[in-house]
Design a protein around this nucleic acid. Structure first.
Length: 595
RNA sequence: GGCUCCAUAGUUCAAGGGAUAGAAUAAAAGUUUCCUAAACUUUAGAUCCAGGUUCGAGUCCUGGUGGAGCUACCA
């Protein structure tokens, strides 16, 4: 039993015996004692005043006395205003430290086969553009939240739905056909996704100049946009694609394969992965049968022109089109079908969609239609909506060339790690490969941490200058702390010192603080899982690293007097190191053995 | 117009309705016979405005102000 429930039950018993009142445990709050006060855990007594009909101080004294007498774990207490501060015994903390040492997976349960399934959809790229900073946030959040859910004991299926069809894809295909001179990633040395992205840009340029030409000839702008030969050609190409024209299909397959190669390498560098990849070219027709079924049941309705709609005005939303008058489907129709298909496939408990907040309305509508159609699981669809990434200069705009490319950014981060390392004279005796591995780890650590430490739902500012700062509240700070502790542990091992708990009765406050922090790690993991918020873990890792750094400075390990103290601190270090590694692992950030 | 989200030190981020609102960074000063100075220590600075609920509000409610997004027979 954990310490919270232990105290809560004791308090409940006390109130029951003395006041004949059954206290609701949820009404009580136990929190960690603020560091300026003495004690480890604090019980807020205000909610109980109604029952005791005594002053906060009296109530605190009363309960404190009872707890100190009846619970072996509680040594002493003090009452300040309405706060009952409880000091937990050293032997309790020592015991916990030992439990954690023997328990191999502190804060990370493994899933049993019958645990609930979480499907997490994230990334969802377009095949006409390389990945950029916004995708990076999506990928990092999606991957991290999957790891966090796994650590909470759930079965997780990471899935990716690739948008590989539609008019925008035809645009890059058409541009390549016209101006590509049979270029390939091999012939140009370009990454496949960048090559295709370049042709998408090329299309846009040529299209615009055509429109301008028409406008100069006196055609109204709106009409010019619709009549420019290029856009007509692209539309024709889409029709041919849908008719499975062999030439178009083969070009489409060719160019997509380049893009996937490019994406795969970016994903690999980022360290994210998927259990299953879906393609819209396979799924875009899904959902029609669901819509027809809804129509038969009278849940949906047909307009005079034959189009089919959902009326959501009762939910405070609008009318939503589901099948056009020509019978073709829209994006929403596909998502209805995809959700249905995924439930059939995974029998999921929850389906998490990691998608930017610009689609909040879409997901509101999606869930609402599925509920109307009577699917029980629709209640458990979750839109993990994250905010936009902005630059200090404002929004990223592809037109102004201010989009930060994912591959370039990763290159830049490891370059910075390299130059900073060289400047500091670190890693002098290392091989080229080792050095390059460390630069990658540190550069990526900086990038990932910078993004993940922010609450997903908030918009964030990405300052390229600040993000390559490796001091302060950053990933490299945590990585550095990790590497240093590992170094201490290595050195101790060389000297034959074995970590262990022996004869410690005089723990100092910082030692207890560290044990406490580690003890509560599983609680943090569980919070992060419930809120679907990796930043909880990120901030925890930083706090732990920072606290260890201070500890390390004030109470040195290698020079501590007395072998027992050294051994104990080594054990503590080992547990800290393990917890940091686990926490950073949940964020998808590697920790280096040396740096 | 309607709907959703956001608003905290100069700046970037924290704070499950709880105590004196925490960090980092920028600024100033200090700490290397010792395990990695990418570290540590000290000093200064903030809850958009007006009401309300509560023993207690950055947090919940109402109304403003400011910012972002959505509101296509696009995806």
């Amino acid at each position: 039993m954990d310490i919270y429930s232990l105290i809560l039950q004791a308090v409940q018993k006390y109130i029951r015996d003395n006041y004949e009142f059954e206290l609701d445990a949820n009404a009580l709050q136990i929190q960690k004692t603020r560091k300026e006060f003495e004690g480890d855990l604090t019980l807020v007594v205000f909610p109980m005043l109604r029952i005791t009909r005594k002053s906060p101080e009296q109530t605190g004294e009363e309960i404190g006395t009872y707890l100190a007498d009846s619970c072996a774990e509680i040594d002493t207490f003090n009452v300040i205003k309405g706060f009952l501060n409880l000091s937990i015994s050293q032997s309790f903390w020592l015991q916990k430290l030992q439990d954690i040492t023997t328990d191999g997976d502190h804060g990370s349960r493994s899933a049993s086969k019958d645990a609930p399934v979480y499907v997490v959809e994230y990334s969802s790229p377009n095949t006409n553009k390389p990945l950029h900073l916004g995708h990076i946030r999506n990928n990092l959040i999606g991957y991290s939240i999957s790891e966090i859910l796994k650590a909470n004991g759930f079965n997780v299926q990471k899935v990716n739905l690739v948008n590989d069809r539609g008019i925008h894809i035809c645009k890059s295909m058409l541009a390549w056909q016209k101006w590509g001179n049979q270029e390939t990633p091999e012939s140009t040395g370009k990454k496949g996704d960048h090559l295709v992205g370049d042709y998408y840009v090329r299309f846009d340029q040529e299209y615009k100049s055509q429109v301008q030409g028409l406008v100069r000839d006196g055609v109204p702008e709106e009409q010019a946009g619709k009549e420019a030969p290029l856009i007509l050609e692209a539309q024709e190409m889409l029709r041919r694609w849908e008719a499975r024209d062999p030439e178009v299909t083969s070009l489409w397959k060719q160019m997509n394969s380049w893009v996937y190669e490019g994406f795969d390498s970016t994903y690999e560098r980022l360290g994210v992965s998927f259990d299953k990849i879906y393609y819209e070219s396979d799924t875009y027709k899904l959902g029609r049968s669901i819509v027809m079924e809804g129509l038969e049941k009278g849940i949906l309705y047909r307009k005079e022109d034959g189009s089919i709609w959902a009326d959501l005005t009762g939910e405070g939303l609008d009318q939503k089109l589901l099948l056009r008058s020509d019978g073709t489907s829209v994006y929403m129709t596909q998502d209805l079908g995809t959700a249905h298909q995924r439930f059939a496939e995974f029998n999921f408990y929850t389906h998490v969609y990691v998608v930017g907040n610009e689609q909040n309305y879409h997901f509101q509508v999606l869930a609402s239609i599925l509920k109307k159609l009577g699917y029980a699981w629709a209640e458990r669809l979750v839109h993990l909506s994250y905010g936009m990434v902005e630059l200090p200069s404002g929004k990223m705009k592809s037109r102004e060339g201010t989009v930060v490319d994912a591959d370039d950014l990763m290159d830049e981060m490891s370059d910075t790690a390299k130059s900073m390392s060289d400047e500091l004279g670190k890693l002098d005796g290392f091989s080229k490969e080792e050095r390059s591995d460390i630069f990658t780890t540190v550069g990526l650590g900086a990038l990932k941490y910078f993004i993940l430490k922010v609450d997903p739902k908030k918009n964030m500012t990405f300052d390229p200058v600040e993000s390559v700062d490796f001091n302060g509240h950053t990933g490299p700070f945590i990585q550095y702390t990790y590497a240093r502790i590992r170094s201490v542990l290595r050195k101790a091992a060389e000297n034959g010192l074995i970590p262990g708990v022996e004869n410690r009765q005089d723990l100092n406050p910082k030692e207890i603080d560290l044990i406490k922090r580690i003890y509560f790690f599983p609680e943090i993991v569980s919070d992060a899982g419930q809120d679907l918020n990796p930043s909880v873990i990120a901030n925890y890792c930083y706090e732990l690293a920072k606290e260890f750094n201070q500890f390390y400075h004030d109470y040195s390990i290698m020079n501590a007097e007395g072998e027992n103290i050294k051994k104990f601190r080594l054990l503590l270090s080992e547990v800290v190191v393990r917890t940091i590694a686990t926490g950073m692992g949940l964020l998808g950030i590697d920790v280096p053995e040396r740096m």
